[in-house]
Simulated scan of single mutants.
Amino acid sequence: MFANFNMGEGGQNNMFVPFMQGMMQSLLSKEVLYPSLKDLVERYPTWLAENKGKIEQAEYERFEKQQKLMEEVCAELEPEQESDPEDVKRKRFEVVLNLMQQMQDLGQPPKDLVGDIGAPPPGFAPPAAQDGGQCAIM
């Protein structure tokens, strides 16, 4: 998702780009992202210690890198204030977006910590699982 989101090139004539940029800035803000990320950062060391011998070394190192990136994102978001100037907000957004892209490149965090991210929420089913083309929510 983040890799295909290039806000700098060719977006001057596209009204959708400012909307998407604003939405991404909201999603990557302290208010939205920080609480859940901070919770993960606090639980990660225990999980890593408990699972060090249970998973492959490469996987363990990948999860360590994820933890460090999450710590960097939290450190970047912690000083965020509503009154920050736009240039500070923009720079922070760019840093957080870059860190989140790096995290995405490392794959999903451990399911024990975040649950099954790939599973659809309750009430949502893939089209093949729906009977008669009915919406699973209705």
Rank of each mutant, 00 (worst) to 15 (best):
G10L: 14
G10E: 14
F16V: 11
A49M: 10
G10C: 08
Y44D: 02
G11E: 02
M15K: 09
P18D: 02
V32F: 10
N51W: 11
F16R: 12
S26W: 08
L27D: 12
L40E: 08
E31V: 07
Y44I: 11
P45S: 10
L37D: 02
L33R: 00
F19P: 01
L27P: 01
Q25T: 03
K30H: 06
V17P: 00
L27V: 06
L27Q: 15
Q21P: 02
V41N: 04
G11W: 01
Q25S: 06
L37M: 15
V17W: 01
M24Q: 10
S26G: 12
D39I: 07
Y44L: 07
Y34W: 11
D39S: 14
P45N: 12
M24S: 13
E42K: 12
F19W: 10
Q12E: 15
G11L: 02
S29M: 06
V41E: 09
Y34P: 00
V17Q: 01
L48Y: 07
V32W: 01
E50S: 14
V32I: 14
D39R: 14
L33F: 08
E50A: 14
M15C: 05
V41I: 13
Q25H: 04
N13L: 05
P35A: 05
M23Q: 09
F19I: 13
Y44G: 05
Y44F: 15
Q21K: 15
L33K: 02
L27C: 07
L28M: 09
G11I: 01
Q21G: 14
V17R: 00
